[in-house]
């Protein structure tokens, strides 16, 4: 038999919110990292040949950053 008092103590809403917020930022951070990996590499490659591509490369590299921003917004909304 599971003790209902103990279960309530373990499932502290504030704690769960914190875990949720952490997951939202952490996982989206990883996701942006993975997405930016190839774009960043490609941008550096293109820039090595043609320096004027710096601006375009930078913008394209940070586009997946939106993923982690959404994660951050969700985290802020939760907590």
């Amino acid at each position: 038999m599971v003790d209902p008092v103990a279960t309530t103590a373990m499932m502290d809403p504030a704690g769960l919110k914190a875990i949720g917020a952490g997951l939202a930022v952490g996982l989206t951070g990883l996701a942006s990292g993975i997405a930016e990996k190839d774009i960043g590499a490609a941008a550096v490659g293109a820039m090595a040949e043609n320096e004027s591509l710096f601006g375009k490369g930078l913008i394209l590299t940070v586009i997946p950053e939106t993923i982690v921003i959404f994660g951050l917004v969700v985290a802020l909304l939760i907590s």
């Binding site: 190839d38 590499a41 550096v44 490659g45």
Partner: peptide, 8 residues
């Protein structure tokens, strides 16, 4: 490094 090499 397909991304780097092909972009370059």
């Amino acid at each position: 490094n397909y991304a780097y090499a092909t972009a370059r």
